[in-house]
Amino acid sequence: MKQILVVDDSATMRRMVMASLQKLKDVTFNEASNGLEAIERLVLAPVNLMILDLNMPDMHGLEVLQFVRSHQAYSHIPIIVLTTKGDETSRAEALQAGASRYLTKPFEPKTFAAQALELLN
């Protein structure tokens, strides 16, 4: 069973992400409402894919991304940044920091699910 960690300060957005991915086989979900909670979840259970918002309280998504990429135990985890920030600077920063994909909200569920499935395999 593969584990997807959905990190977003919006409970509604976390539910939308999980609903979009519910048809993926052999997948379970874990949630975090901020960056610090995301790091805690990484320590507590293995993660096969992270869906990460950028604009969150306590710890910005880029900081989470940098933390994950700087620790050998987590650096292999694919990360989809899913954010409202559609500007090229934000995209370039996230990809340079190690994001596997950069997608903007609102998102197309089928395209999003295809991206997630590709990274899980």
Rank of each mutant, 00 (worst) to 15 (best):
residue 54 L to W: 00
residue 97 A to R: 05
residue 63 E to N: 02
residue 87 D to M: 04
residue 42 L to Y: 14
residue 13 M to Y: 04
residue 87 D to L: 02
residue 18 M to W: 07
residue 45 A to T: 12
residue 100 S to V: 08
residue 54 L to D: 01
residue 69 R to F: 12
residue 24 L to T: 10
residue 19 A to L: 10
residue 43 V to G: 08
residue 64 V to L: 00
residue 59 M to A: 07
residue 39 I to V: 15
residue 78 P to R: 10
residue 78 P to T: 12
residue 79 I to H: 09
residue 39 I to A: 09
residue 11 A to Y: 03
residue 77 I to N: 03
residue 103 L to T: 07
residue 26 D to R: 11
residue 95 L to Y: 06
residue 18 M to Y: 03
residue 46 P to F: 11
residue 16 M to D: 12
residue 75 S to P: 00
residue 77 I to F: 08
residue 96 Q to T: 15
residue 57 P to F: 15
residue 91 R to N: 03
residue 108 E to K: 13
residue 32 A to H: 03
residue 75 S to Q: 14
residue 54 L to E: 01
residue 52 L to I: 06
residue 92 A to S: 13
residue 66 Q to W: 01
residue 42 L to P: 11
residue 73 A to Y: 10
residue 50 M to C: 12
residue 22 Q to C: 13
residue 16 M to V: 13
residue 29 F to C: 05
residue 22 Q to N: 09
residue 39 I to C: 10
residue 75 S to C: 11
residue 14 R to Y: 05
residue 8 D to L: 00
residue 35 G to H: 00
residue 15 R to L: 14
residue 35 G to I: 01
residue 53 D to A: 12
residue 98 G to M: 11
residue 63 E to K: 03
residue 19 A to T: 12
residue 44 L to W: 00
residue 73 A to F: 13
residue 47 V to H: 02
residue 39 I to E: 00
residue 52 L to Y: 11
residue 105 K to H: 04
residue 82 L to M: 10
residue 63 E to F: 00
residue 89 T to F: 05
residue 83 T to M: 08
residue 83 T to R: 07
residue 56 M to S: 07
residue 11 A to R: 10
residue 89 T to C: 02
residue 44 L to C: 12
residue 10 S to M: 04
residue 18 M to F: 06
residue 81 V to M: 09
residue 24 L to A: 07
residue 63 E to G: 04
residue 28 T to P: 02
residue 11 A to S: 11
residue 41 R to Q: 14
residue 34 N to P: 00
residue 75 S to N: 14
residue 14 R to H: 05
residue 100 S to G: 13
residue 28 T to W: 02
residue 55 N to C: 10
residue 64 V to P: 04
residue 70 S to R: 15
residue 86 G to M: 06
residue 21 L to S: 11
residue 107 F to S: 04
residue 26 D to F: 03
residue 85 K to L: 12
residue 17 V to P: 11
residue 26 D to S: 14
residue 79 I to V: 15
residue 68 V to D: 07
residue 94 A to V: 06
residue 21 L to K: 10
residue 88 E to Y: 01
residue 39 I to N: 03
residue 39 I to Q: 08
residue 62 L to R: 02
residue 22 Q to L: 07
residue 10 S to V: 04
residue 13 M to V: 15
residue 17 V to A: 09
residue 56 M to D: 10
residue 29 F to I: 03
